[in-house]
């Protein structure tokens, strides 16, 4: 991965030196194991901050919304799909961007590692598909494929779908994965079981809105939960309000979600709210053959009418 870092720095430096961009958005090393901080560099001297490893799970497209500058942005597969969505939704212009594509081999799940580690984690390093976790007691080694984020392990778009620079040769796409196995499990339940399942899933929610705010799709000037005239949803911890928030947040992502996993990654209490967005992704794929963010030329599923759209809802 360190070659990725070198190549990102080289590219960023060149783009800044040649005044192709005013700023480059990427990641810098975090202060915690398995954490990196999204950052912006504005001069060639600063590019040595930039790094790349398997802890760059935050979706950088989130930092583009309504920006006016010429921007270089480091983008893995899912980030690039959200950049496409941003372009389609007029949140940024293609001409403003120099997309530095990063073929991605998946991000590691800090919670999985924390749960598997024996004691507090002091450092995490990786090499050749192995993740080495150092705790006060021991050094443990995991296969990276076993500790990937849930969305990365079923990802079928690891390579950027749009880019101006590529920092490495494309990686092979995964073909033998079933992205919707977890959704199918829920579909097999009775309504009562499903209701109880989500009751339990959402119970720890503290309504910090990290899922919403980490999501590049959530850019409304005022979110419906923050509206007060009229007030659509209560602001307390009532389960009906918490459920309404999660339901509508997910629904607003219908046909737009790339399953980048930023929401789940950001959640301080570890809720897998992707089980909601993925249901919609699955429906979009099955009903409209639609996957979000693959092309700037086509209109999103919910923004487009086709004569063969399913209409079995009509009585």
């Amino acid at each position: 991965m360190s070659t990725y870092t070198d190549k990102i720095r080289e590219t960023a430096q060149r783009l800044l030196k040649e005044c192709k961009v005013e700023m480059v958005i990427g990641f810098r090393k975090g202060s915690q194991p398995m954490m990196n901080e999204p950052c912006v560099v504005r001069s060639p001297e600063e590019v040595d901050q930039l790094i790349w490893d398997s802890n760059c799970g935050i979706n950088l497209a989130n930092y583009l919304t309504n920006r006016k500058e010429k921007i270089g942005i480091v983008a893995k597969g899912c980030d690039s799909r959200n950049i496409v969505t941003h372009i389609v939704e007029n949140k940024i212009a293609r001409e403003q961007l120099v997309i530095i594509g990063v073929p991605c081999l998946g991000m590691i799940d800090k919670r999985k590692i924390a749960a598997a580690a024996d004691g507090e984690i002091l450092s995490v390093t990786e090499a050749d598909g192995q993740v080495m976790v150092k705790t006060a007691q021991a050094t443990q080694t995991f296969a990276k494929s076993d500790v990937l984020q849930g969305n990365c392990s079923v990802c079928t778009h690891r390579n950027p779908v749009i880019h101006d620079e590529m920092i490495a040769e494309p990686v092979p796409e995964q073909t033998d994965v079933d992205p919707y196995a977890d959704v199918a499990e829920i579909d097999a339940m009775t309504p009562e079981q499903r209701h109880a399942f989500f009751e339990e899933l959402l119970a720890p929610c503290i309504r910090c809105y990290a899922c919403r705010n980490a999501c590049p799709l959530c850019y409304c000037p005022t979110c419906f939960v923050d509206e007060s005239k009229p007030q659509w949803v209560g602001k307390g911890q009532d389960p009906a309000d918490v459920r309404t928030f999660h339901f509508l947040r997910a629904y607003h992502c219908a046909g737009r979600c790339t399953d980048c996993g930023a929401c789940q990654r950001a959640c301080p209490v570890g809720i897998n709210m992707r089980l909601l967005t993925k249901k919609l992704n699955k429906d979009c794929l099955e009903l409209y053959g639609w996957e979000a963010g693959l092309s700037t030329e086509t209109r999103p599923a919910l923004d487009d009418y086709q004569p063969n759209d399913p209409e079995n809802f009509i009585h």
């Binding site: 959704v183 309504p191 009562e192 499903r194 209701h195 989500f198 339901f247 629904y251 249901k279 429906d283």
Partner: peptide, 13 residues
């Protein structure tokens, strides 16, 4: 929307 509501436990009818 109906699909997602049912996914979360709303009765299909």
């Amino acid at each position: 929307m109906k699909n997602l509501l049912e996914h979360m436990g709303m009765e299909p009818d």
